[in-house]
């Protein structure tokens, strides 16, 4: 490569920085969805690169299902503190209590319940834009999404009526009540994310690395055993998700490849305990990243349906 040429990571980086600055330039009240997962960790570094030495001009927003890996929450809070960023957390738990979200009887996963909570937070803070770390290589429905993905006043995505996105000219205009989801990592792959983490020497939550954990085998996946009940008389958020008779608890040397929450994430058996090891593992992988996600497996159009309803 010659002197005036970027490699693929530098290209993806400058593309993402350009998009973040377009958001800052075009929107009144943008927010950045930060879960503490690997994609949003990259987003935060890109935000630093886009906006330093000034303050990052957007708050961080996270929707908790209540089933999170504790390591993830700790990491999220620490990172927000380090950056001096404002972190807004809204929970499915509170939304259920307020009557904003209604669990389907018998359904333990709160994945879909994140939708009304996210939409509620957008309305509460009058956000006109939410930046997310979703990537097009994750899933077929994502592959069709724009960088600037328009949502109507009900938060809905209409895949058939997307605004054409030409050159790098992003149409960021929304009317009051409508909003935009913006995905600066659209063109990144799982491998790009890990190579960027390596190049930028970014810290990631410890659960991405190999560790020993109690798991059960369920629906062909290694499902983590939830932490013990609080024992203070409160309802057990993991009721129904705990090891059942016939599900022996085993110790497994494993890690997460993608993080949903403790109910929707399958652990993968892995000795990888460094970013270099993970990159080698991703390179050799023969299943996709979301192959371990229970939330995508319900039907071939699971993601499409959730996105139409307002999922990010």
């Amino acid at each position: 490569m010659n002197l005036y040429q970027l490699d693929h990571l530098q290209y993806l980086e400058t593309e993402a920085i350009h998009i973040l600055r377009e958001v800052a330039g075009e929107f009144e009240r943008p927010a950045l969805l930060f879960s503490g997962g690997k994609d949003s960790i990259c987003l935060l570094r890109l935000a630093e690169k886009a906006f330093r030495p000034a303050d990052i001009p957007l708050p961080l927003l996270n929707v908790e299902t209540g089933h999170e890996f504790p390591e993830l929450i700790q990491f999220r809070d620490r990172r927000a503190r380090e950056l001096g960023a404002r972190l807004i957390v809204r929970t499915v738990e509170a939304a259920i209590a307020d009557g904003l979200a209604h669990p389907v009887p018998g359904e333990i996963s709160r994945n879909k319940l994140q939708i009304p909570v996210l939409l509620g937070a957008i309305e509460e803070f009058q956000f006109d834009c939410a930046i997310g770390g979703a990537r097009r290589d994750e899933e077929k429905a994502r592959a069709k999404e724009r960088f600037f993905s328009f949502r109507d006043r009900f938060g809905q995505w209409d895949p058939k009526a997307q605004r054409p996105e030409i050159w790098h000219l992003y149409n960021a205009r929304v009317n009051p009540g409508e909003n935009m989801r913006v995905f600066p990592l659209s063109n990144w792959t799982e491998m790009d994310v890990w190579q960027y983490i390596q190049r930028e020497q970014l810290a990631v939550p410890s659960i991405y690395f190999s560790h020993e954990r109690e798991v059960v085998r369920r629906h062909n996946q290694w499902v983590p055993v939830p932490p013990p009940p609080a024992g203070n008389g409160a309802a057990d958020p993991y009721h129904g998700a705990r090891p059942q008779p016939g599900e022996p608890v085993q110790k497994l040397v494993c890690r997460v490849r993608t993080i949903g929450d403790m109910i929707s994430t399958g652990m993968i058996e892995s000795p990888a305990d460094s970013v270099e090891d993970i990159i080698a593992e991703v390179a050799a992988a023969r299943v996709t990243e979301r192959g371990n996600r229970a939330d995508d497996k319900c039907s071939e159009a699971a993601m499409e349906d959730r996105k139409k309803a307002g999922y990010f």
Binding site: D137, E139, K140, K144, N187
Partner: peptide, 24 residues
């Protein structure tokens, strides 16, 4: 079927939007 990601497309057997794919 690999690239026709949306249900509407599979039903109608057409590609209705731009789909992005990545490989190395």
């Amino acid at each position: 079927n690999l690239t026709d990601g949306l249900r509407a497309e599979r039903e109608q057997g057409i590609t209705i939007d731009v789909a992005y794919r990545y490989f190395a």
